[in-house]
């Protein structure tokens, strides 16, 4: 049963990633692109964890944690750049 649920969740997050990719390419403004990139990072973290479940391995949690940190920092840096034209003043 868990196998089917895993496949379903993989498919859902894969389609979600495709939606985000479409939004990155066809967005009305730069803020929407940053939002889509942030969502993409979160979806990729979910896919890492699903892959960790399906291979019974705990190695991918470190990768997910690193991804979460760099995603947060990069989103904040993008927003700061849009706001002020500079990242570190």
């Amino acid at each position: 049963m868990i196998q089917y649920a895993l496949i379903f969740a993989f498919a859902c997050f894969g389609i979600a990633l495709l939606f985000n990719l479409y939004r990155i390419f066809r967005a009305p403004g730069v803020v929407d692109r940053v939002l889509a990139l942030d969502t993409m990072v979160i979806n990729i973290i979910a896919i890492f964890i699903l892959y960790g479940i399906s291979t019974h391995s705990g190695v991918y949690f470190e990768a997910a944690l690193l991804f979460a940190m760099t995603g947060f920092v990069s989103t904040v840096a993008y927003c700061k750049f849009i706001l002020r034209g500079d990242i570190i003043e």
Partner: peptide, 26 residues
């Protein structure tokens, strides 16, 4: 329990990204 949580996770992730496409303004 684990399967229900996984299915709920997939549905929520899909709904979140679908809303990113469908909602009208930023």
């Amino acid at each position: 329990i684990v399967s229900v949580l996984l299915v709920a996770a997939g549905v929520f992730g899909l709904v979140g990204s679908f809303g990113l496409l469908k909602l009208p303004d930023t």
